[in-house]
């Protein structure tokens, strides 16, 4: 391109970019770097401390990630989770399913507690979709001994929570591998509580139709709805569950 943009217009253009996308322009030329600095300084209440803030680097594709891995720094949990959220398995592979492969210096800088990995598969999985879940299984993370690490509640807030509920309750789901010996009855009860707490009537209806709601599960659903302070949900459970749970024997 022969026509150069006037310097001040770069600031207007950069104002549409999230912080992560301002990193590469900083390494492009003094004009672009100065425009980024000007923008950041004009947007923050305490710009002097900006350099100490959490700074996610861009994860749009492999090329940009490879660039900053070679030229800027090693990854943090911010980039790995961003890659998981956008279902980029190859990128998660590149950045790592945990932080153990990183340099000692970087680990020491980013770990909350020495010796404790700051992220691992159990942090990544809840933010990914079926592709990430499948990759996680293939890499051998979803085993019985790891089950206590895994909190899948963010998965229930994603676009297709019904599929995740079916998967946890060991029903076949398209594009999701079934796993044995991972989701225990105790875990399923925890999910039942979460479903009622977050008012997911569709998923609860599906569990009813599959005759999977025993009195204990029903009890936990009432508890979830109650602790969420949702009278609407309690009434809905009252109207819906008795047909399926029968006597609602809560003495278990």
């Amino acid at each position: 391109m022969q026509q150069h943009l006037p310097d001040d217009l770069w600031i207007d253009i950069f104002s549409f970019l999230p912080l992560a996308d301002l990193c590469a322009p900083c390494f492009t030329s003094t004009t672009l770097r100065d425009a980024v600095c000007h923008l950041i300084h004009s947007r923050l209440l305490y710009p002097t401390y900006w350099w100490r803030h959490r700074k996610q680097l861009p994860v749009h594709n492999m090329e940009i990630a490879e660039w900053w891995l070679s030229n800027v720094r090693e990854p943090t949990e911010l980039e790995v989770l961003a890659a998981a959220r956008t279902n980029q398995v190859e990128l998660v592979d590149l950045l790592g399913w945990d932080d153990t492969h990183l340099s000692a210096r970087h680990r020491n800088l980013t770990r909350f507690q020495p010796g404790l990995s700051w992220w691992d598969w159990s942090d990544i999985l809840p933010w990914g979709s079926k592709r990430i879940i499948t990759a996680c299984l293939k890499r051998g993370h979803l085993t019985g001994e790891n089950r206590t690490l895994f909190d899948c509640t963010p998965l229930l807030e994603k676009e297709r929570p019904l599929d995740i509920v079916r998967w946890i309750f060991q029903m076949p789901v398209e594009d999701l591998p079934s796993i044995d010996n991972f989701f225990t009855v105790r875990y399923q009860r925890f999910i039942a509580y979460e479903l009622a707490w977050s008012g997911q009537k569709e998923a609860i209806t599906m569990l009813k139709q599959q005759e999977l709601i025993d009195p204990w599960l029903g009890n936990l659903m009432y508890q979830g709805a109650g602790e969420a302070g949702s009278m609407d949900m309690i009434r809905w459970l009252d109207m819906s569950l008795d047909k399926f749970v029968g006597s609602m024997d809560l003495s278990i």
Binding site: C26, R52, R54, K55, L57, R73, E74, T76, E77, L109
Partner: peptide, 12 residues
């Protein structure tokens, strides 16, 4: 710039 965009304790 590498220093500015580097990881800090706050990244964790």
């Amino acid at each position: 710039m590498r220093k500015a965009w580097g990881a800090t304790k706050n990244d964790s």
